[in-house]
Design a protein around this nucleic acid. Structure first.
Lengths: 352, 352
DNA sequence: TTGTATGCGTTATCAG
DNA sequence: CTGATAACGCATACAA
């Protein structure tokens, strides 16, 4: 009464052939006569035969499954990335197991253990905001597990990486604010050991420098991730709006920070763009519904998912060990809205 | 050089035992001497043995994998549901394969075929907005595939179902609008064959009736799903705001419809609550950032995911065929904000 | 208490 | 061209 029962053996028995002949016929082997092939194929079709993927996995020592570690599915950036991952994976016959770190290092480790114990063929990783120790990943990688990092990468591990040009995104956003006469641009950042924090901060600094504005460390507020992120953001934004002289703009360096900031500003009745300008990294669908409209730096999340998966599958399926690892850099899209009082201009996202 | 190589055989060889003894020792069988057990367990631990889940699957004829079919991961409601699903599944040692219908019947069918060909143990389904034909699902179910429906259920198939009390949610929201002196309440609905549409519409009608307000069919705008949903919403909302007498409120019967409506209202410069009141079903995180704040009916998505998964695993693991199927009804949470000029009151979500 | 043999579904390696 | 057999890693019925 169990759901699937039809195997190669059934076909063999019904047709008076051996299992090997059937197997070969199904795989369209050259050593099978056209008539036999036709017969087998037709019968298989008729009784709706499908090879058992588990048996195949056991034989091939491949699970056709890749593991994905992200912060949170509910984060728009990640759900868009996952769309990209699934579209490529499914097309190539791979399963995807997603696990969320919820931005906790401990949970990330647990997931990593879980995934590797489930015999996955490869790993797609965006490390949690909290992750500061890469020993386990290093160990995994050195043992031969194919890994591709995306977005929040681990520089110390030599493998394929896919990132957004965070430097450029932050540089352009900052420049845009400067062109709108901002001189005191405050920054809301994550902890500084995260690759994306470093890159975005570097872009910010470079833009200031190129405009001849001195960098003021006081203006950069770091928020520790984790359960208390919200509190951290509240405190940070309050710090910013109480500074003297009052900053004339805020730059949010991540999705969560940007929306968190908006929330606080709204509560504190600070108006955009009347009281200050704001730009931020964000992939949320609703940001364009926010009033006042917020200018954002949007990441090509879907493309990032696609590209990472392509690279990973390539790694998995390559016969020889790969040594020439690449780092792909995607361009973010600057979406300028009326909050910065300029007419709309878009920079399309393209792969480099 | 492959990643995982250590098997029961390795342990057996190293310890001079047979594989069956090792297997039994690892499974803590009563017929193995304590000393042997200890020895095996310690050695297994030492060389970091993990049973090969694929071999187990082949043996047990179980993949320990469940398939999930949802509309879109990027939809907050679904991503929250998936969180619930994964938390239960992972805890019980099950993998989750997610596939998105993107609200297309054809894609849903493709995914269904894909999933069943991957030998999954059970299926968690929320049918796409477009799905009008349940033959394949019926067939699958009749062949013994454990299925649990959640949110958008298929009434004709007799199995466990988990839904939100859509009737009540819509009833209370409508009542709330009526208490705020609305008499002409327009509705933005999905196609009428969807279970959730029917239930929510029924709640709306009942609330009108209980308040002695005549039901006016003209006020209900149905939007066809799919690629042109956005256009449909634009047209529907324009219809609504051009009606005479102008409706004094709009009720959005789904997440997409609600945010879509807000978008159009904003473009058309219709203000909430000055020009009309609005309430809607929504699970988006950002809705509380919207200005003016929108009162919403929020679904207990996480709990729904947890509960559905528990029921499914129960179905999968039960020895005898199950016949006493249940339909669990969860309560939505009404979040009233200042857009409807009443003080905040919350109805907590609880399982029934 | 432990070992031997078998099978889960498939393919690869030999024989014929 | 086709068939028999072994193997993938594990659990278990049966023997010892």
């Amino acid at each position: 009464m169990k759901f699937e029962a039809v195997t190669i053996k059934d076909i063999a028995k019904a047709l008076g052939l051996s299992t090997s002949t059937v197997s070969r016929a199904l795989r369209d082997s050259y050593e099978i006569s056209p008539e036999t092939k036709k017969m087998v194929l037709e019968y298989a079709e008729k009784i709706n035969y499908h090879p058992n993927p588990i048996a195949l996995s056991l034989k091939e020592r491949k699970s056709h499954t890749i593991g994905v570690i992200v912060g949170e599915i509910a984060n728009s950036f990640f759900s868009q990335t996952i769309n990209g991952i699934e579209s490529v994976a499914q097309q190539k016959g791979y399963n995807v197991i997603i696990s969320q770190s919820h931005e906790s290092f401990e949970k990330e480790m647990r997931n990593l253990h879980y995934l590797t114990s489930r015999s996955i063929d490869g790993l797609l990783v965006s490390v949690s905001v909290e992750t500061n120790n890469f020993d386990y990943l290093k160990d995994l990688h050195s043992k031969g597990m194919p890994i591709v990092f995306f977005d929040r990468i681990v520089n110390e591990i030599d493998t394929h990486k896919v990132i957004v040009d965070n430097y450029k995104g932050a540089y352009e956003a900052t420049t845009h604010l400067i062109e709108n006469n901002c001189r005191n641009i405050a920054v809301l950042a994550n902890v500084s050991f995260l690759s994306i924090t470093q890159e975005r901060l570097a872009g910010y600094k470079a833009a200031l420098q190129d405009a001849g504005i001195a960098y003021n460390e006081q203006l950069v507020q770091h928020c520790k991730p984790g359960a208390h992120l919200n509190d951290e953001v509240v405190a940070a934004v309050k710090n910013i709006i109480r500074m003297r002289p009052t900053p004339d703009a805020i730059l949010g360096l991540s999705d969560k920070l940007t929306t968190g900031c908006l929330r606080v500003l709204q509560e504190e009745k600070v108006r955009i763009p009347e009281d200050l300008l704001m730009m931020g990294f964000s992939n949320g669908e609703l940001t364009d519904l926010l009033n006042p409209a917020l200018s954002i730096i949007k990441q090509p999340a879907f493309e990032m998912g696609e590209l990472s998966t392509q690279l990973l599958l390539q790694l998995i399926e390559s016969k020889r060990p790969v040594t020439d690892f690449v780092t792909k850099v995607l361009l973010p899209e600057l979406v300028i809205r009326n909050s910065t009082k300029k007419k709309n201009l878009k920079v399309k996202a393209t792969a480099e």
